[in-house]
Every structure is written in structure tokens, then in C-alpha cells.
Design a protein around this nucleic acid. Structure first.
Lengths: 156, 156
DNA sequence: GCGCTGCTTGACGCTAACGTAAACGTCAAT
DNA sequence: ATTGACGTTTACGTTAGCGTCAAGCAGCGC
């Protein structure tokens, strides 16, 4: 039975039933996202994940689709240069109670904060990309000027 | 004498002459970019900066406009989540010899590498921004539904 | 029962990126 | 000459984010 690399479906020992959606072991998630189980447990220590426990004495971790999503968001945050603390704040924010009006307003304020940070990063990104474009164009021009003898058209 | 916060012009002890362009002391740069002198010296240790030395025994650092630019690029790289090593590689790359054709080609290859990394980051950024938009819209909808009694129009 | 594999919890180690403190030089003003 | 303000080196301390053992439990096939 070939296991799908991107969507491991088998819960753990059961064939394909269970009550809820798909679940994952720690090594499955580790393989899927190309990180170590150690890293995943560390994220749990930092409050980024809270998997269910299963087996004798509830030793073994079992991750739901929701936990998988949190991990995915965590890794995306890391790629954006956020610290684990910042990521935890964002994750907590997204799951904070939003029942009352003041809660909603604070939520909006936090969202605006994050948006601002992201937009600043966007500017940095675009600036960096612009510089690369700049260098690349200049470089191609140099190449074209250095070796035009190989082509069949264009000259001095 | 009010010193300009964004463009400190006075070299150090001279009024406004010197042979080259504007120069900066370490504390001037530190204030301008809101970092500590310690950080700037650390970047130098890591090979990101190489300021001129001036004064008795050449003890004191003096930064040219070019060094200031390198520092600026360094900080931008940091905001993008790059390590100092990665930043140094990029800076070195931008000042590497590009005389021969193979050099130019390797340069182009490196540029393509960096561009790819940046474009991936761009995707992450846009995804994150999209999620914020999503949450914000939903949040505003909730607010509108929770307190329509304050408005003068619209109702069930 | 026995070893294999996979998962678990410590606990210590390690790199990156500075912070912080000590101890000294120096230039200008007093 | 002394006092600051600023700058310097050296060195140890700190935080984040895991890596790397070490030692043990739990099913599973034989």
C-alpha cells in the first residue's frame, strides 16, 4: 500500500474509519513538512500546538487537521521571519473569543497591526526584487556586449 | 544648532569640506537606523561592513555613504528574515568581480536563486495578507450585525 | 519471551545575534 | 589638570530555536 506523500490518510492503526476527520502522527507531519519531530514537539512546548494524546496512558501524540493547519501557519510564519512568540500570538489571536463588541474591536486593531507589519515587509521585498532586476538587466547588457560574435544579427 | 535626524551632514570635526562625500560616525548611524553601536560593530565583525579608520592610531571608525548603504541593505535583509551570513553573501555577491563571461553567468544564476527565494516569500506574504483580509471582513460583518441600532439606515 | 520499530520524556549542547560590563583612550571645554 | 562625551577592545552573558544523545515504554511479528 503506497502512502500518499502529501496526504497521509491512515489514522494510526485503524483502516479508515474513526469518528472525526483525518489525523496524523508526529512523524507523518514531520515528513510532510520536512522538519524533525523534535521541532514539532518544541513548537508544542512553546504553545503553538496542542495535539490529542492517544494509546496507553495517553502517551502518543495524534494531530488533527486543525493542528496540522496550525503547524502549516507556524512554518509560514517562520519563513516570513517571525519568531515563535510572534507566531503564537497570531495563532492565539485567531482563536481568541470574539463574542462581544470590544473584543471584536481589539481583534480588528490587532489585525491592522499585523497588516502594517506585513505591508512594510512587502515594501522591503519589492525593493529587493527591484534591485535584483536592476542588476540582472545590467548583467545581461554586459553579456550581450561581451559576446555578440556568436549571434547572426545585430552588430556595432 | 539643530542636527537633522535623517541626514547628519557634519563629517566629525570639520565644518563642511573634506575630499569625498558625506561621512558618518558610528553613533550617527546608530541613531539614524535606531540600532546600537554594538550591533554595527558586530556587523563589521561578521564582514558586513568595513569602515575607514581615522584619528590617532586609526582607532575611530568613519563610515562613507557606501558603508551606510551596506548597513541599510543589511537591516532590510534582517527585516526579511535573512541571517547575517546570507546578507553577507548577497553583499559580497553585489561587489564580486564581473569582468569575465563565466563570472557574469554565475552572477546571473545567483540572482535567479535569490529571486526565487524572494518570490516564495512574496507568496507567503500574500497568503498571510489574504487571511487577514478574510478575518477582517468577517469581523466587520459581525460588528455590523451586532450593532445596527446606531445607524440610520438598513434593517431587517 | 524477544527483538524490532516508533514514540516518549528529559537533559545537555550548540549557533546566531547581539547585550552588558569593564577598562581604557581622546578630544574639547572648563 | 580634570571632567565629560564619545569611542575603542575584550570578554562573558543571554535568548531563540532547535540538534543530539540517553533511557525507557508499547505494540507487533516470530
Amino acid at each position: 500500500m503506497p502512502s500518499s506523500a502529501t496526504q497521509p490518510p491512515t489514522p494510526i492503526g485503524q483502516p479508515a474509519n474513526a469518528t472525526a476527520g483525518t489525523t496524523y502522527t508526529i512523524t507523518e507531519l514531520a515528513r510532510e513538512f520536512d522538519i524533525t519531530p523534535r521541532a514539532i514537539r518544541f513548537y508544542e512546548d512553546q504553545g503553538l500546538l496542542s495535539p490529542d494524546r492517544v494509546g496507553a496512558g495517553g502517551r502518543q501524540r495524534l494531530y488533527s487537521g486543525r493542528e496540522r493547519t496550525r503547524l502549516k501557519l507556524t512554518l509560514r510564519g517562520k519563513r516570513l521571519g517571525l519568531t515563535l512568540n510572534e507566531i503564537r500570538e497570531i495563532l492565539d489571536l485567531y482563536e481568541s473569543p470574539r463574542d462581544t463588541v470590544p473584543q471584536l474591536e481589539r481583534f480588528l486593531a490587532s489585525l491592522a497591526q499585523h497588516r502594517q507589519a506585513l505591508e512594510r515587509q512587502m515594501e522591503d521585498l519589492q525593493a529587493q526584487l527591484a534591485e535584483i532586476d536592476q542588476h540582472e538587466r545590467q548583467c545581461r547588457a554586459l553579456l550581450a556586449a561581451a559576446a555578440p560574435e556568436h549571434e547572426g544579427a545585430a552588430g556595432a
